[in-house]
């Protein structure tokens, strides 16, 4: 397993001026150093999935950079929807690689909502 620094360097190397920004804190000017890198748990999860899939060889960082660029380009200027773009890019890549179609994602998303709806408050939601 490569170290995090190597992974980061790998992503950065692929991005160059084209950007796909690295995952960023939901920061704002004035926010302190204690900012969470990930504003919400799902952001960390989708980021981690991407790193793991890369380690498994599903895509290269330049390929990822391209997919993410496409989504970020249409995203908000202030980067506030950065992880939304990230997730959308991951869906694009998964569909493109034949791993999971848009329909698969819709279906599984609905299952999670259904599971949440039937789970009493305070209990872990499980499918």
């Amino acid at each position: 397993m490569t170290s995090a620094a190597q992974t980061l360097a790998g992503i950065a190397a692929s991005c160059g001026d084209g950007l796909p920004l690295p995952p960023a804190a939901a920061g704002r000017p004035g926010a302190g150093a204690g900012d969470e890198v990930f504003a919400e748990p799902w952001q960390a999860q989708v980021f981690a999935m991407t790193v793991v899939l890369h380690e498994r060889g599903l895509f290269t960082w330049p390929e990822w950079a391209q997919a993410l660029s496409r989504r970020v380009r249409d995203g908000a200027d202030d980067g506030s929807d950065y992880y939304r773009c990230w997730a959308a890019a991951l869906e694009d890549v998964l569909a493109d690689r034949g791993v999971a179609s848009a329909g698969d994602v819709e279906g599984a998303t609905r299952q999670w909502h259904d599971a949440a709806a039937r789970t009493p408050h305070g209990q872990p939601i499980e499918l």
């Binding site: 999860q45 989708v46 999971a100 994602v105």
Partner: peptide
């Protein structure tokens, strides 16, 4: 994102 994790 949970859905993506489930599928993967």
């Amino acid at each position: 994102v949970r859905a993506l994790e489930t599928l993967l």
